[in-house]
Amino acid sequence: MTNILIVDDDINIVKLVDIHLSEHGYNVFQAKDGMEALEILEKAACDLAIVDVMMPFMDGYTLTKMIRKQYDIPVILLTAKSEIEDKELGFQAGTDDYLVKPFEPKELTFRMKALLRRFDHQPDEAILQIGNTTINKKSYEVQVGKRTLLLPLKEFELLSYLISNPKLVFSREHLIEQIWGLDYEGDARTVDVHIKRLRERFSNLTDDFQIKTVRGVGYLLEVHRK
Results as ranks from 00 to 15, higher is better:
216 G>D: 10
160 S>P: 02
50 I>P: 00
124 D>K: 15
137 K>F: 01
125 E>V: 00
138 K>M: 10
96 D>G: 05
79 T>L: 03
4 I>N: 05
24 H>W: 01
148 T>Y: 03
114 A>G: 06
194 H>Y: 14
101 K>R: 06
133 T>W: 05
1 M>E: 07
56 P>M: 11
100 V>I: 12
202 F>D: 01
62 T>D: 08
15 K>Y: 07
33 D>L: 09
113 K>F: 01
7 V>A: 13
21 L>R: 06
176 I>L: 13
105 P>G: 03
31 A>M: 10
174 H>L: 08
158 L>F: 13
37 A>P: 03
170 F>T: 12
132 N>I: 06
46 C>K: 08
73 I>G: 05
125 E>R: 14
171 S>I: 04
50 I>R: 05
137 K>R: 15
52 D>N: 10
3 N>I: 07
33 D>K: 08
73 I>D: 06
110 F>Q: 15
199 R>Q: 15
87 K>W: 11
44 A>R: 13
26 Y>H: 09
153 L>G: 10
182 L>R: 12
91 F>H: 01
69 K>A: 09
74 P>V: 07
50 I>K: 05
154 K>Q: 15
45 A>M: 05
225 R>C: 01
83 E>P: 00
27 N>P: 04
26 Y>P: 04
194 H>A: 09
114 A>M: 06
116 L>P: 03
136 N>C: 03
149 L>V: 07
167 K>L: 02
30 Q>F: 00
184 Y>I: 13
132 N>Q: 08
155 E>P: 03
74 P>D: 04
139 S>Y: 00
128 L>I: 12
126 A>N: 02
113 K>G: 13
223 V>Y: 11
166 P>G: 08
34 G>P: 04
211 I>Y: 06
191 V>N: 12
